[in-house]
Design a protein around this nucleic acid. Structure first.
Lengths: 350, 350
DNA sequence: AGAGTTTTCCAAAACGTTTTGGAATTATAC
DNA sequence: GTATAATTCCAAAACGTTTTGGAAAACTCT
């Protein structure tokens, strides 16, 4: 490539061994020569060749992350991922690691080949995984291959996972309680994908929350989205078309909620008065939605940093202080769930 | 790592040369043995070690992209980048390339060191660059080092750049014309960063558009944002606090506009009636904003794919059909710029 | 049957590091 | 002044590929 360690060695009439060890702070090189080496190396613009180092060290100083795009590819526009990736790469950078990114539809052949290629080909030392599925082949695969990895959420069977969990269940309980308190009773749920761990948890929280409030759950009020605003829009349209439409819509994430709000506005339904709509994530756009969106906030950037930190510490064979971290989402009450003003349909006014 | 080419060779009593060449489809290996090799390699789960291949080939099959985060790190939530990165990695994948991602504040020391490290250390074969500054050291640096790169936008002096340009100027003309036609005259502009190429172009378009419409430009109506919804929110607050506030706000991008809409709503100003607000990008959330946002749409995903395609073709030393592509943004007229209903302040009713 | 040609294979040399296992040299102890 | 220990250096062997420059074997022609 450019200046190699050999060039530096030649210039100083030293062996490449010594140069290498000087730069790596070994203690079997005299202080005077170390200084000389360091200075000359910098002066000559020497940067170690990564491929060579990787090959020899059998380590890449790189962690991998694969985006869950849909097969269409386009329209993949959740700010969640911008923030998540920013977190991953900032943490990686801090440890002089790099972040390798690719995209593949969940559970697709492409996804499988990508993981395999990166693992077997030694492209990365470890993975960060999110959007975990209930029964996730990735977690099994990486565990079997002994590849360091940290995941956002565990899959159902894995008790010994390394990563972070968000307490979606209790968050949802709190959210439902809030809605009920504000006078909303006929509460719908817009899901992501049914095999997603977070969807599973949030749906369970939703159902349990209803039960605690003494509200009977109506299957017609549970509709499928796909975690995009487009999906949220269509899901909400389905709900509004019901003979007895809901008065509140709980969405799996913020962008879904933004889509649902759009559908409401289009029908002249005023969010925060006629209907309550809630999200999950706490992305910046949620605060600036019209009306601002009540949501369960999770610190995406910081979660991403912690996940990256876990994988790279695993990769460096250090011991982790905490293998499993559980975090609580924070309920941000905004005007999308203002006090209910109209009576519940089919019920006496409260 | 795992199965190496040597293992495969040993199993078949062939030399590693032959195995290597068989897998690479050289024509100096008999068809029968090639088949044998391919089958056995697959069966043994052989995946070539990337580091070794890189070292020997002096090529990484990897392109780099560095996210322009702010120094705070957090709150980096523009869906533009999710879509952009998805595009980059999909295109890279299609060519069996990988995408290396990191994040750094524009023009920071971190940014410089990152580029240098990746270039000198041979981590990547090329770069994709966006958010180009008027006088961008990255473009100069990469050109001087002869590193393949494609950029979204050129910097001021570069005439021979490789990449894509969006015709912000003419898009803005069209947008202003649209606003004027709808009855808006006192039109403000919320910028990104003044040294950004796109900001420069859009501001110029805005000013020229006003002039063509015979509207005198008022410096008080040009305020700075930072391309986030937070920034848009505050910029709009400044504008509303003016003694003669604007009746239309043109924003550098969609998330800025979403923030501005929030500020308007908070003051009870109805967007699409009392005030018009516009964005630029065409992100999904813009379509679902309240009201849906008039914007200049650009095909982010496809642009990203093309940019990736350009860099990797440069890296493969192929000739590009088109070194420079100019695309036109598409004006999407939505209800955030509905017909003006109130009179202009300080003017007779139109 | 010998000279060319073509086909099929391979040994060895890279690529730029890190690491192993000493070998000099110098200091320290008796 | 010798034996021992500490310090400072280095040659050579990896790491797993690709590529170079043939060589052997098998055909094809006269």
């Amino acid at each position: 490539m450019h200046t190699t360690i050999r060039d530096v060695a030649k210039r100083l009439h030293l062996s490449i061994t010594t140069v290498s060890r000087a730069l790596d702070n070994y203690d079997d090189v005299a202080d005077s020569t170390r200084k000389l080496v360091v200075v000359t190396a910098k002066e000559m613009g020497y940067v170690p060749n990564r491929a060579a180092r990787q090959l020899r060290r059998q380590r890449t100083d790189t962690i991998g992350y694969i985006l869950p795009t849909d097969s269409a590819g386009t329209g993949f526009a959740d700010p969640f991922f911008s923030e998540f990736i920013a977190g991953l790469s900032d943490e990686a950078s801090a440890y002089h690691f790099d972040l390798l990114v690719s995209a593949a539809p969940p559970d697709s052949k492409i996804e499988k080949e990508l993981y395999k290629r990166w693992v077997q080909g030694g492209k990365v030392d470890g993975f960060v995984i999110n959007r975990v599925r209930l029964n996730d082949w990735r977690l099994r695969f990486l565990a079997r291959q002994h590849i360091p990895h940290a995941s956002y959420e565990r899959s159902l069977s894995k008790l010994d996972f390394v990563g972070i969990e968000i307490d979606s269940f209790n968050g949802m309980l709190e959210l439902i309680e809030h809605l009920v308190e504000r006078g909303y009773k006929r509460i719908a749920y817009v899901s992501g994908a049914p095999n997603l761990k977070i969807d599973h948890d949030r749906l369970r929280g939703y159902q349990t929350g209803l039960k605690s409030a003494g509200i009977e759950s109506d299957p017609a009020l549970i509709v499928h989205g796909d975690m995009t605003s487009e999906g949220g829009y269509h899901a909400a349209e389905l709900l509004f078309a019901l003979s007895v439409p809901p008065t509140a819509i709980v969405c799996i994430n913020d962008v879904t909620a933004i889509g649902a709000m759009h559908a409401a506005h289009e029908r002249g339904i005023v969010v925060g008065r006629d209907i309550a709509i809630t999200g999950f994530d706490g992305i910046e756009d949620a605060a600036h939605a019209t009306p601002p969106l009540t949501t369960l906030d999770q610190p995406i950037y910081s979660i991403a940093r912690q996940l990256a930190n876990m994988t790279l510490n695993l990769a460096l064979r250090k011991t982790l202080e905490n293998k499993q971290i559980k975090i609580q989402p924070r309920l941000l009450i905004r005007s999308s769930t203002d006090e209910k003003r109209c009576s519940e349909p089919g019920k006496a006014k409260a």
